[in-house]
Simulated scan of single mutants.
Amino acid sequence: MTTMQLPIISTCSVAGCSYNHDHDCHAGAITVTDGTSCGTFVSTGDHEAGAAAHGQVGACHRSDCRHNDKLECSADSVDIGAGDDPADCLTFAMA
Rank of each mutant, 00 (worst) to 15 (best):
H26K: 06
H26F: 02
H26Q: 09
A27F: 01
A29Q: 13
T31Y: 02
T33S: 11
D34P: 00
D34F: 06
D34V: 03
G35Q: 07
T36G: 03
S37F: 05
S37Y: 10
C38I: 10
C38D: 08
C38A: 04
G39V: 02
F41N: 00
T44P: 00
T44Y: 00
G45L: 12
D46Y: 08
D46L: 11
D46N: 14
D46E: 13
D46M: 09
H47E: 03
E48Q: 13
A51N: 05
A51G: 01
A53D: 12
A53E: 11
A53W: 11
H54P: 08
H54K: 12
H54S: 08
G55C: 06
Q56R: 15
Q56E: 14
Q56P: 00
V57L: 04
V57D: 03
V57F: 08
G58I: 02
C60S: 04
H61C: 08
H61V: 10
H61D: 15
H61K: 14
H61F: 11
R62M: 15
R62K: 14
S63R: 12
S63P: 03
S63A: 15
S63Q: 14
D64P: 04
D64Q: 11
D64K: 09
D64I: 09
C65R: 01
C65A: 10
R66N: 09
H67G: 05
H67L: 09
N68C: 15
N68M: 07
N68V: 01
N68K: 06
D69E: 13
D69G: 03
L71S: 15
L71T: 13
L71Y: 13
